Computed example of a mutant assay.
Amino acid sequence: MSRRRIAGRLAAVFAGALVLVGVVAGTAAARNPGAGTDHLSSYSSAEGHLAYQVHVPPSWRPDRSMPVMVAIHGCGMTGYGLNSMKSMTRFDDLADREGFLVVYPTQSLLRNGFLCWNSLSPDHQDRDRGEPELIAGAIRQVVERYGADPTRVHVAGASSGAGTAVILAATYPDLIATATSVAGGEYRFHRAEHDLDTVTPVDTAYLALEAMGPRARQVPLIVVQGDQDDVVPPFMAERLVRQWLVLGALIETGQPDVDTTPDEVERVEPPGAYPYTRTSHRVPGQASIDSYLVEGMGHTWSGPRASGTFTDRAGPDLTSIIWEFASERPLR
């Protein structure tokens, strides 16, 4: 599927929501951190300006080094305003119970008129450039300001934000402990979109390895895909899993040969909810990869309390699944 076609579908799906989205304008000067509050802040560099919000759980203390979850929204959304990643995921509720910080970056209309992250653009796929640099800079700012644990920084993204989460894992493996892609695709997919048969996940795995450079490390990954997604089709999830498996082999052995047989396949049929299949790869010496194929789900985030335009409460509780996976896998 071409980038033009994907962009066209995104425009059709999200244009209506843009009417409802209030652009989060301006940022507040950094306030003193306080437990049980939300703080607006921003990060600026030669690459531009990024507004974000930090949710600080009630259990936060200056001497308690907490994990960080960075939640990256999709097209037609904001991080913490109307139709937000904040309300969609309800990460704040879980953070208050489990004790971690949540960061919600918000895309600027100046960079994308549909509020998509530019994850298909080569200008935003490298370390120290574009949106990856801005989000990484914001993460470092949060870690320093709140005394967070730099070995437990996790990213989770939806749609275009999923693409950005994978880009961060490939370009900042020294910063990102785990990554989650919900309805996203592989790193450097734009190289393959016009000729999927010729440019394989093996080819893009080499590009991911090049992006990692001397910091090469396979980042543990969750891939979530609805089988009824007509914006990001299911083959994108399959390619991402394949890319990450090959990347792990390249990092460990220098060769792209890898056994793609999963270590575990579990089918779950919750009463009154969508069935889904979890496929797990636990390759010795490599990172964990869990993929979820949800039957009946479209281009949405799922969970029993999910709220917003692009949600489906009949799917699995992704927020809890993501945190359970991330909390067991610090950066080593």
Rank of each mutant, 00 (worst) to 15 (best):
M1L: 14
R3M: 10
R4N: 12
L10W: 11
L10V: 12
F14S: 15
G16M: 07
G16Y: 07
G16F: 10
L18T: 09
V21W: 03
V24I: 07
A25V: 12
G26K: 06
R31Q: 11
D38Q: 11
H39I: 06
L40S: 07
Y43Q: 05
S45H: 01
H49V: 09
H49P: 03
H55W: 04
H55V: 02
P57I: 03
P58Q: 04
D63H: 10
R64E: 13
S65K: 08
S65F: 04
M66K: 06
P67I: 08
P67M: 07
H73L: 11
M77S: 10
T78Y: 12
G79W: 01
S87P: 13
M88C: 15
M88W: 13
R90F: 12
F91P: 05
L101V: 04
F114E: 15
W117R: 06
P122R: 00
H124P: 03
D126Q: 11
R127P: 00
R129K: 12
E133A: 13
A138G: 08
I139Q: 09
R140L: 04
V142S: 05
V143H: 01
R145W: 10
Y146D: 02
V153K: 07
A156P: 05
G157Q: 10
A158F: 15
A162W: 09
G163H: 04
V166I: 14
L175F: 01
I176T: 07
I176L: 09
G184Y: 04
G185M: 09
G185Q: 07
Y187E: 00
H190K: 09
T198D: 12
V199I: 14
D203C: 05
T204D: 00
A208G: 04
M212E: 02
G213C: 01
P214D: 00
I222A: 04
I222E: 07
Q225P: 04
D230N: 15
D230M: 15
L240Q: 07
Q243L: 04
W244N: 06
V246P: 03
L247K: 00
G248I: 01
T253E: 09
T253V: 04
P256W: 00
D259R: 13
T260R: 13
T261K: 07
P262R: 05
V265L: 01
E266Y: 01
R267N: 05
V268F: 08
V268K: 11
P270M: 09
T277C: 08
T279R: 09
S280W: 00
Q286P: 03
A287F: 08
L293R: 12
G298D: 12
S302G: 13
G303Q: 11
A306S: 15
T311H: 14
G315L: 03
D317E: 14
E324H: 12
E324S: 13
F325E: 03
S327Q: 14
P330L: 05
P330K: 02
P330F: 02
L331I: 06
